[in-house]
């Protein structure tokens, strides 16, 4: 019996995934923790001319030039301020490194497959194409972002499109 329990726990363990939860305004979002390289403060960003407003510029991450995207601007949030508390999540997308600015990072959550619900068809600013689902956690709801799809999408203008 104990063996069986252990086995099923292991099975759940195998299928559940860990997510990094961050906040944008009042909403809670989460991305796959395996995509996250590090979390750092927002500083020393060099502006890039003629780029969309949500691309804040580039910064030096130990010798690597990394673009910084402010998801708050991209998602049309009202209060966009930069201070000591502003956090940049550095993510690995494909073979690229990109920093995303968020309001804050709260915690790391483990979600079982049952806790991940499919995302409904909605959203104008954030198309459900870029969501991998909604995570329900007691009374909280996490918007699970498919950061790969989002950051490599044409509308993010982070990647040179072929022929452009």
């Amino acid at each position: 019996m104990t063996d069986l329990n252990a086995a099923s726990a292991a099975a759940v363990e195998a299928h559940s995934r860990e997510f990094l939860v961050f906040s944008l305004g009042d909403e809670e979002y989460a991305i796959d923790i395996l995509k996250v390289q590090e979390i750092r403060g927002y500083e020393n960003v060099t502006r890039i001319a003629n780029a969309p407003d949500f691309i804040k510029g580039v910064t030096n991450l130990r010798g690597v030039i990394v673009p910084i995207v402010d998801l708050r601007i991209k998602f049309h949030l009202d209060n966009v301020e930069y201070g000591g508390q502003t956090v940049v999540i550095v993510v690995n997308v494909g073979d690229r490194v990109v920093g995303i600015v968020v309001d804050g990072v709260s915690d790391v959550m483990t979600l079982t497959p049952e806790q991940i619900k499919p995302a409904p068809e909605f959203g104008v600013t954030l198309s459900s194409d870029y969501l991998s689902g909604l995570g329900s956690l007691e009374d909280r709801m996490l918007v699970l972002v498919d950061i790969d799809k989002l950051l490599t999408s044409d509308e993010m203008a982070l990647v040179d499109t072929v022929g452009a």
């Binding site: 060099t46 890039i48 001319a49 003629n50 780029a51 580039v58 030096n60 010798g63 690597v64 030039i65 990394v66 673009p67 690229r96 490194v97 990109v98 203008a157 982070l158 990647v159 040179d160």
Partner: peptide, 18 residues
């Protein structure tokens, strides 16, 4: 430093440096 490694070609700019 190449800008295109993690970003894209920027008009008027050939590369970056630290």
């Amino acid at each position: 430093k190449n800008l295109e490694t993690n970003y894209r070609k920027v008009p008027g700019v050939s590369a970056a440096t630290i």
